Amino acid sequence: MLAVVAQLGLIIYFGALIGVLTKAPWVYPYSWHPICMGLYGFVATEGILLLQPNVKGKQRALSRTVHGSLLSLALVSAVIGFWAVYENKDRLGKVHFHTNHAYLGCAAVFVFALQVLFGLSVAYAPKALYRKIGQARITRIHRVAGYISILLVWGTLWLAVVTNWVNRNFNQEWIFYLGLGMVAVGLVGQVNPSRLYLTRKSSSVTP
């Protein structure tokens, strides 16, 4: 049920964003910023939701592969979106990083990049590299970092609602907040505190 609430919240938030994009005039390269950052937030959230059920065996392996692919796609979108807004400010001679949205967005992309690179290295690097840490502890570190990362992503998306671009082209901000609230309830409600401890309590812990 909570997963359905989160999915509906995603549809509401990003449906409203699509509405803004269709109404706003096209400005190159800036217009690529909300498009790519919207894709980044949507795909990253789907990647997190995918691993909320505690599945096992072949289904777990498939879920982890899709999870990594989705988050890699989200990172590529984030980098392009970051480039778009940076290039646009350079073109207009504006100051970089002078709003809370910019500060939090930069932190979100940085933490997300570290999280994705760490996950890929755990999946594809030689197993001996992380043997001393232990699979259970690595899984929990990755999971906690993932929740922190998605919190930063959605904090940035929340601040995006009050940007000048949204205010000029959309006057129903409550729709964004409704979507944000539903995603928050759907994500937080599925967090199992027992899966967040960073110390290994038993060998039965699975990713």
Results as ranks from 00 to 15, higher is better:
A3L: 15
Q7C: 06
L8S: 10
L8V: 15
G9H: 01
L10N: 04
L10P: 01
I11S: 04
I12H: 02
Y13V: 04
Y13H: 06
L17H: 09
L17A: 12
V20N: 11
T22E: 06
K23V: 10
A24T: 15
P25Y: 06
V27F: 11
Y28T: 11
S31V: 14
H33W: 12
H33K: 15
P34A: 15
I35N: 14
C36H: 07
M37C: 13
G38V: 11
Y40S: 15
G41I: 12
V43Y: 02
E46V: 08
E46M: 11
E46Y: 05
I48T: 06
L50Y: 03
P53Y: 00
N54C: 04
V55N: 06
V55S: 09
V55D: 01
G57N: 03
K58V: 06
R60T: 00
A61H: 02
R64Y: 08
R64P: 00
R64E: 10
T65W: 10
L70N: 01
S72A: 13
S72D: 02
L73P: 00
A74D: 06
A74H: 09
V79P: 01
V79R: 03
I80L: 15
G81A: 12
F82K: 09
F82Y: 11
A84M: 11
V85C: 12
V85Q: 10
V85P: 11
E87F: 10
D90M: 14
D90P: 03
